[in-house]
């Protein structure tokens, strides 16, 4: 192998840089704390069972968005027969008004920054 030493050093540096986020998180101790989202709501049931919402709320929001904006559909009849307006600001956030405690807990933890709030207005309770 030509320049074997240089290649090995290069590889080590490369791997170090690529894995930086992983070990940096570990070293700072942040990753050890699990997110604790708080559901503060009077409503008994969500628009779908909790485990479905936990896993697939983003898919549902995407679907709702297209239905409302593109197909002009506004009402969602949930699994339990309840009717809901398909609206992030006017339905979801009415029951879960605290974005910081509810959304950001997990989203910050996994480093996912959805662009919802670039346009949709977060409820006042968040601040």
């Amino acid at each position: 192998m030509y320049d074997g030493g240089k290649i090995v050093v290069g590889l080590v540096v490369f791997i170090g840089v690529v894995t930086f986020p992983l070990w940096y998180r570990q070293a700072s101790g942040e990753a050890l704390r699990a997110p604790e989202p708080k559901i503060v709501t009077d409503a008994k049931e969500c628009v779908a069972p909790t485990d479905y919402m936990r896993a697939s709320h983003q898919a549902m929001l995407n679907e709702w968005r297209d239905l409302v904006v593109r197909d002009g559909m506004r009402v969602y009849v949930a699994f339990n027969g309840q009717e809901h307006e398909m609206s992030l600001s006017n339905t979801c956030m009415k029951c879960h008004p605290n974005k910081v405690e509810f959304c950001d807990q997990c989203h910050n933890y996994i480093g996912v920054v959805p662009y919802c709030w670039d346009c949709h207005i977060e409820p006042k309770e968040s601040n």
């Binding site: 779908a48 002009g72 559909m73 009402v75």
Partner: peptide, 12 residues
Amino acid sequence: NEQPQILPGPDA
């Protein structure tokens, strides 16, 4: 099997 229904608003 239980597909949620999608409707336009009732007062639309």
